[in-house]
Design a protein around this nucleic acid. Structure first.
Length: 679
DNA sequence: TAATGGGGGTTTTTT
DNA sequence: ACCCCCATTA
């Protein structure tokens, strides 16, 4: 039973067994946040709450699973798997699928990921006759970011643009036109983007009657990583809890790193304004890191202008810890060598590769290290950055899945038609136009599509007509066919195009096969496509299996993706100003403070070993020797440096290069002079 | 008129 | 991987 748990401290226990008022737990890194949430779920189950009536909102599906697995490990007989949980977006998706009628959606809506949304914005822009190559008009990805920030914060577009894209603020009206056309187009095509999932969920919970019903489904709502909640998500929570005060929020203002998604730690700090009767419990005893590492973290916190809520306290000394170091390297190449050396050194000392992580600010910062690791045959897995899901062939098949349910999805048509050789944007567009009915909208069923297909065929080159017709046949659903069989037919129809256009077709076809298998237990293909997009594999290894056969591998991760994780050893690379903090974030004081928190997150992932690396020199082009000198990150203030042991590494390569600058010796004379004594 | 392939330059972070 | 630009091909 719950009372028997002895691994909780008093504060954790108090939080876990707290009553029915709104509860805010401020939990610094390593203070047992997950343990406490787990214990709270366990406590609620013990007190007789039906697992299905607990909603656990976490930042990633992975952390939801981790918490539920832990509960499950403790009480194997419980129906823990029935606890409702996931990310805001995935719970929104489930809610909308189930209750599509009440929010006025069709049940076959497709879900666009970020880059699909950007593509649609670009399409809408060109339809409006707004030319993209004019200077000062934001590019599609910037447009997508602007749109997202605007709807997630609920602030006026002009304010958002003035703050984040002042260089094009005078284009506000055009951007506004693009956005309203974008909204209309999504609706006409039966598509929702990530933001729409939340917007529709909010619309539902904000409705007096519907909201009451949706909220009444849950007795308890628990929210992890509350510091990364934005206004839209806060509105949803307030709607869900309009008649019920049982809400638990766990977070840490010091780890708020998702401002670019409209999140603000203010919602955690000001939670009492949104939830009446709020009680706060603060956890600050750290069970993760060595005292020396905590000193680094606290020094970083002390530099923050407004400070952090929790100053971390050591529980008891961590065994086998080394002094945190600041390592100066010659350049990026040298940094990779030094990191690889250090990783192997720790490995020799018994720290498995899996317990070591290399962290960095931006995904491409690991490029050189990846080369070095491959050269030395050190296996690694990379989190963050590019995902397999973003690979073209996967997106192709997912587009086909969406299309099979919803023939109005022009985005999907546009993408699939261009898969055929000889079909580019212009022909794809004409073929789509040929499919339209008189009123310019696409048919709702594949029967009608089949009827119009001969006309569309005129726009496809002769030698791809067979293949494209086979694809249309595959997309057309058959009576009494399981989604998986249908998916397999679609996959088979696409395979020839994949084989024709990619060198490494075998590996890509394997990816597609995995996607087909993922259709096992669903009723709709568009549902599978959405699930895949919402629960993307988080690393380059998740999708196709680990990169090598070895059972141990080093973790490479962006700091964002490392959130919530911990490692015996952390190697933080590129701690140079401009990289970390990123110079993209220096425009505003808030941006800089977010970078500081990000640095803090990186440092606090480490249990026993922390090494921060600063390359002194950056090469800009491969040509010649153009380079600039880097300043160490501004977060490495004097106070922070006093908590670190500084180490200056000289590189044999750099030392060797210096030789060429020396005055030459008289080589031939010396050699011949010495030899001449022999004869 | 379109599609395609090559080359060069860039890339913040994620649901 | 993306974007942008340019030359070549169908």
């Amino acid at each position: 039973m719950f009372a028997a748990r002895t691994d909780l401290n008093d504060r954790q226990r108090e939080a876990a067994s707290f009553g029915d008022q709104p509860l805010r737990v401020i939990a610094g890194p390593g203070t047992g946040k997950t343990t406490t949430l787990t214990a709270r779920v366990e406590y609620l189950l013990d007190s007789g709450i039906d697992p299905e009536r607990i909603l656990l909102l976490t930042f990633t599906r992975r952390s939801a699973r981790e918490i539920l697995n832990r509960v499950h490990a403790i009480r194997a007989n419980a129906h823990v798997h029935r606890v409702s949980g996931g990310t805001f977006h995935s719970v929104a998706h489930h809610t909308l699928r189930r209750h599509h009628t009440v929010v006025g959606l069709s049940d076959c809506f497709g879900v666009l990921d970020q880059s699909d949304a950007a593509d649609l914005l670009d399409l809408v822009r060109s339809d409006l006759g707004i030319v993209s190559n004019e200077r000062r008009l934001p590019k599609k990805n910037t447009l997508a970011a602007l749109y997202s920030r605007t709807v997630n914060t609920g602030e006026a577009l002009s304010d958002i643009m003035a703050e984040h894209t002042p260089w094009c603020a005078d284009r506000r009206d055009q951007v506004g036109h693009i956005f309203s056309a974008f909204v209309a187009r999504k609706r006409a095509l039966g598509l929702l983007d990530f933001d729409d999932l939340l917007l529709y969920w909010r619309a539902a919970v904000e409705d007096e009657t519907v909201g009451k019903k949706l909220g009444a489904v849950f007795d308890h709502v628990l929210v992890d990583e509350f510091q990364d909640v934005n206004k839209l998500q806060l509105d949803i929570l307030m709607g869900l809890r309009r008649c019920d005060s049982r809400l638990t929020m766990v977070g840490d203002d010091a780890q708020a790193i998702y401002g670019f998604r409209g999140a603000s730690p203010r919602f955690l700090l000001d939670a009492q304004d949104y939830f009446a009767g709020l009680v706060t419990i603060t956890l600050n005893v750290n069970y993760r890191s060595s005292g020396a590492i905590l000193k680094v973290a606290n020094a970083l916190g002390a530099d923050a202008p407004e400070g952090f809520c929790a100053t971390l306290r050591e529980d008891k000394p961590v065994l086998g810890a080394s002094a945190p170091r600041l390592v100066h390297c010659a350049d990026e190449r040298h940094q990779s060598e030094v990191v690889a050396d250090r990783v192997l050194e720790l490995y020799e000392e018994g720290v498995a590769l899996q317990n070591q992580a290399v962290l960095f600010r931006a995904s491409h910062h690991s490029a050189d290290l990846e080369i070095e690791l491959s050269r030395r045959r050190i296996p690694f897995i990379k989190y963050g950055g590019l995902r397999y899901l973003e690979a073209a062939h996967v997106k192709d098949l997912l587009a086909a899945f969406r299309l099979a349910d919803n023939p109005r999805d022009e985005m999907a048509w546009f993408r699939l038609l261009q898969l055929m050789p000889g079909v580019g944007p212009a022909r794809a567009r004409r073929a789509i136009d040929a499919l339209r009915d008189g009123d310019k909208s696409l048919p709702l069923s594949f029967e009608d599509i089949q009827g119009r297909w001969p006309e569309a065929l005129d726009h496809v080159p002769l030698d791809t007509r067979d293949g494209s017709t086979r694809l249309i046949d595959a997309l057309t659903p058959r009576a009494h066919e399981s989604p998986m069989t249908h998916a397999q037919r679609i996959c088979d129809a696409i395979a020839p195009f994949i084989v024709a256009s990619y060198e490494d077709a075998v590996a890509r076809l394997e990816d597609l096969g995995a996607l087909v298998l993922a259709c096992g237990d669903t009723t709709r293909l568009s549902d599978v496509a959405a699930e895949q997009v919402l629960e993307a594999p988080t690393s380059t290894g998740d999708f196709a299996g680990p990169p090598m056969v070895d059972e141990d591998w080093l973790v490479l991760s962006t700091v964002h993706s490392a959130k919530g994780l911990e490692f015996d050893a952390v190697h933080l690379i590129h701690a140079a100003d401009g990289n970390f903090p990123s110079d993209m974030a220096l425009g505003s004081p808030e941006g800089l403070e977010e970078e500081r928190r990000l640095f803090y997150v990186a440092v606090t992932r480490a249990r026993r070993h922390l090494d921060v690396y600063v390359p002194l020199r950056y090469h800009h082009h491969r040509v010649r020797d153009e380079h600039s000198w880097a300043q160490p990150s501004r977060f490495l203030s004097d106070a922070v440096r006093q908590t670190l042991e500084e180490q200056l590494h000289t590189s044999p390569r750099i030392e060797a290069a210096k030789l060429t600058a020396l005055a030459p010796i008289a080589g031939p004379a010396l050699v011949e002079g010495r030899l001449s004594k022999l004869w």
